Simulated scan of single mutants.
Amino acid sequence: MEGMEMEVEEAEPTPNPKHSKRFGLKNSIQTNFGDDYVFQIAPKDDLTSMAVSLSTNTVKLYSPATGQYLGELKGHSSTINQISFSGPTTPNVLHSCSSDGTVRAWDTRSFHQVSAVNAGPSQDIFSFSFGGSGDNLLAAGSKSQIFFWDWRTKKQIACLEESHMDDVTQVHFVPDHRNKLVSASVDGLMCMFDTRGSINDDDHLESVINVGTSIGKVGFFGEASQKLWCLTHIETLSVWDWKDARIEVNFDDARLSASDSWALDQVDYFVDCHYSGEGDQLWVIGGTNAGTLGYFSVNYKGKGTIGSPQAVLHGGHTGVVRSVLPLTGMRDGPTHARGIFGWTGGEDGRLCCWMSDESSDVNRSWISKELAIKSPRTRKKSRHHPY
């Protein structure tokens, strides 16, 4: 990529600099030149490509190692709410769901759609997950409903209508328990289902957890994936033991706790949580409206605390960040991608690549010439609807 050099701001002091590392911007890609957003970045299993969903209802593919543009997937007629690569048996297949009511499968070599299921034109699909025997059971969250299809036949086999009263923002099969499904909703409830047999609301709902406010994102972590983290639309964080339906810690003031642990601007929102089995470490990723990110360590045992950021990503984005893809620690990554900490994408339409190799020149960034041309329109800095 032909580019121009630009200085990145020097690190500002943090309350605990010994445990905080600042990462340099290696590369920045402008995915578009309008007011379009990056929604999500999803990695291929072997990290040879990454998919990026955009607010143009398209998915673009890039190389995580070089940032090279590989192609795009077009077909959805409304907002793409989730993307995910398939497992090792079909590594070149990407799945996506959309507010157009469909879950689609794409061949990322030919950039063509290969199959799809349709819940109907009036059904937004906010999330999906594959599980069950052979991972052939597809669950999808919609408007107060959870749909189930047999992916082999594309036949709808169940629809749960009584467990939630509002949009189902998340569905996830438990990684180590492929017949267990958790759903989360704007109604503030998380429901756990056993999906074996003929699925229905009465016989297969095992437990209900009341978080008390609209749920944005959940994820599993810990030994045997027994723990569950939950981020809400009012930016609170809680940790649960889903087997016992028991709360372990609740951070009602998570943003304040994170803001108090660094010397930068206040934390305005949370993007995601990441977990490392090495050291049993959970991080919550918080961001500012100006685009700075922090990896804040979470101690979820006992009273629970949110500590100083162990990583700060600063100088790449100019707006809200929507997605973070870490490459460090993900199967060590491909050899040619080592030294890259990860990628981020946001409402400024940018993809930013961050260096983690301390021997590299991390105080400089390379930005394509088009990025020097600023849009004359003023961008709002407010948090947008999350799904």
Rank of each mutant, 00 (worst) to 15 (best):
M1K: 15
E2F: 11
E9D: 15
P13S: 11
T14R: 07
N16L: 04
G24H: 02
L25V: 12
I29S: 01
Q30T: 05
D36F: 08
F39H: 05
Q40P: 01
P43H: 00
K44I: 09
T48P: 02
A51N: 04
S53Y: 06
V59S: 02
K60T: 04
P64S: 01
A65M: 06
A65N: 00
A65D: 03
G67L: 04
K74F: 03
S86D: 12
S86F: 12
T89D: 14
T90Y: 07
P91M: 04
N92W: 07
V93Y: 08
S99F: 13
D107M: 06
N118K: 08
N118M: 09
A119P: 09
A119H: 06
G120K: 09
S122A: 15
D124R: 10
S127C: 05
S127T: 02
G132Q: 01
G134C: 06
D135A: 09
N136V: 01
L138P: 03
L138C: 03
A139Q: 02
Q145D: 13
Q145M: 13
W149D: 10
W149L: 02
D150P: 00
D150R: 00
D150W: 04
R152L: 02
K154G: 10
I157H: 01
C159N: 15
C159L: 14
E162C: 09
S163C: 11
D167Q: 09
Q170E: 14
R178M: 01
R178A: 02
N179Q: 07
S183T: 10
A184V: 09
F193W: 06
T195H: 05
I199P: 03
H204G: 02
H204C: 04
V208D: 04
I209R: 00
F220V: 04
G222Y: 00
K227M: 07
K227F: 14
T236G: 12
L237I: 07
W240R: 00
W240F: 01
N250C: 12
F251V: 07
D253A: 05
A254G: 09
D260G: 15
L264T: 08
V267W: 01
D268H: 08
D272C: 09
G277N: 12
T288F: 00
T288K: 02
N289H: 15
T292R: 03
S297A: 12
S297Y: 10
N299A: 05
N299S: 05
I306K: 04
T318Y: 10
T318R: 11
G319C: 10
V320F: 14
S323D: 10
S323V: 05
S323N: 08
S323A: 11
V324S: 00
L327C: 11
G346C: 05
E347H: 15
G349R: 05
R350T: 04
L351W: 02
C352L: 06
S359D: 15
S360R: 09
N363E: 15
R364C: 11
S365Q: 12
W366L: 13
I367Q: 03
S368G: 12
K369P: 13
S375E: 13
P376L: 01
K380I: 08
K381E: 13
P386L: 13
